[in-house]
Computed example of a mutant assay.
Amino acid sequence: MKLPRFILGDNTDVPDSIFIIHTEFPRFIIDLKTDDIEWFENFDVENEEEFLEETNNLVKEASEFYDREVDRYQ
């Protein structure tokens, strides 16, 4: 099965939060309410600046995915 790169999720235990799940490496979940990121990978960060830049890019892509999904519901 081919999973989509991003998945939108929610949970009734945390009703005010919406989650974006990134299914490709590096896998993570972002809580859009708090902007917390939970990584499913362990990293040995050799170049912290490069890691931060890539993280920022992925968060931006996740936010764009969310905006696109919300627009499609309206």
Rank of each mutant, 00 (worst) to 15 (best):
I37D: 08
W39T: 02
D35A: 15
E53V: 13
E61Y: 00
E48H: 14
N42F: 06
E50Y: 06
E53P: 01
D35Y: 12
E50K: 07
N56A: 15
D44F: 10
T34W: 06
F25W: 09
T55I: 00
E53Y: 14
E46P: 00
E24C: 03
F28N: 02
S63M: 12
D36K: 15
E41M: 05
E54H: 14
T55N: 02
V45R: 12
L58Y: 09
L58F: 08
F40K: 05
I37K: 10
D31C: 13
D44R: 13
E50L: 07
E49L: 09
F51E: 05
N47Y: 15
K60W: 12
D31L: 12
E54M: 09
V45W: 03
L32M: 15
V45D: 02
E61W: 01
D36P: 00
E50P: 05
D44H: 07
T34V: 01
S63K: 14
D44L: 11
K33Q: 12
P26G: 00
E53I: 12
P26C: 01
E64M: 14
I37P: 03
E61R: 07
V59K: 14
N42T: 12
K33S: 08
I37L: 14
A62N: 00
L52H: 10
E64D: 14
I37M: 07
E50A: 14
N57F: 11
L52F: 02
E64A: 11
E54Q: 07
E49G: 04
A62C: 10
E24F: 07
E49A: 14
R27Y: 01
S63H: 14
